[in-house]
């Protein structure tokens, strides 16, 4: 067994389904992803959700590519400000456009002079996160395909969130959304 082999942690075959919830537990509604994982872990303790691996992290990172290996399905779970519904399940391939469910006002670009022709932007870059050490699930999907071939079925469970203050508890709305999203996820897993 090697560090780089998938499944080495338990020395058993990789679970076909991975649920990866991410966020900072100390920043209000940003805790939605980890909290959903907590709920599912409690169910695993009593013997439910066999065949499902549960992971939590602060944010998607490049090493999560290796967590995708050998899976049939991966569901990312994240807090989503601006979501009118309690949750939405989004295919990751189109993450960038669909994780802004309430479209932001267009920048002053209706007659924009394009510094760089949009047609020159590779489609896969439209799923890349540009602004920090983190990656988006869509970027992971693209990087996975580049390095390892066709990725498993990837989805993002976006749960409605509204407040991200340090030290804050979940907002009442996020609490309710978490309950609804958890119940739904349990039915489909």
């Amino acid at each position: 067994m090697r560090c780089f082999d998938p499944g080495h942690v338990h020395a058993v075959p990789v679970a076909p389904i991975l649920v990866l919830g991410y966020g900072n537990p100390s920043r209000g509604d940003d805790a939605l992803g980890p909290l959903l994982i907590d709920r599912l872990q409690q169910l695993q303790v009593v013997g439910r959700l066999a065949g499902v691996e549960l992971l939590t992290d602060f944010q998607p990172q490049i090493e999560h590519l290796l967590d995708l290996l050998g899976r049939e399905r991966v569901i990312f779970v994240d807090a989503a400000p601006g979501l009118s519904a309690p949750y939405r399940l989004l295919p990751v391939e189109t993450t960038q456009s669909q994780t802004q469910p309430e479209p932001q006002p267009e920048p002053q670009s209706s007659s924009a002079l394009q510094v760089q022709d949009e047609a020159q932007i590779q489609p896969e870059l439209q799923v890349l996160g540009w602004t920090s050490h983190r990656l988006t699930p869509g970027a992971l999907a693209h990087l996975f395909r580049s390095l390892y071939g066709e990725p498993p079925r990837l989805e993002l469970l976006a749960i409605g969130a509204e407040a991200f203050e340090l030290g804050a508890a979940l907002s009442a709305r996020a609490e309710q959304n978490l309950r609804v999203a958890s119940n739904w996820l349990l039915k489909v897993l």
């Binding site: 002053q108 394009q114 949009e118 870059l125 602004t131």
Partner: peptide, 17 residues
């Protein structure tokens, strides 16, 4: 003058408000 680089990587020069 305004340049915007969006989360999808596109870079646009915009009309000025």
């Amino acid at each position: 003058d305004r340049l915007q680089r969006h989360a999808d990587g596109t870079v646009l020069r915009c009309d000025v408000p």
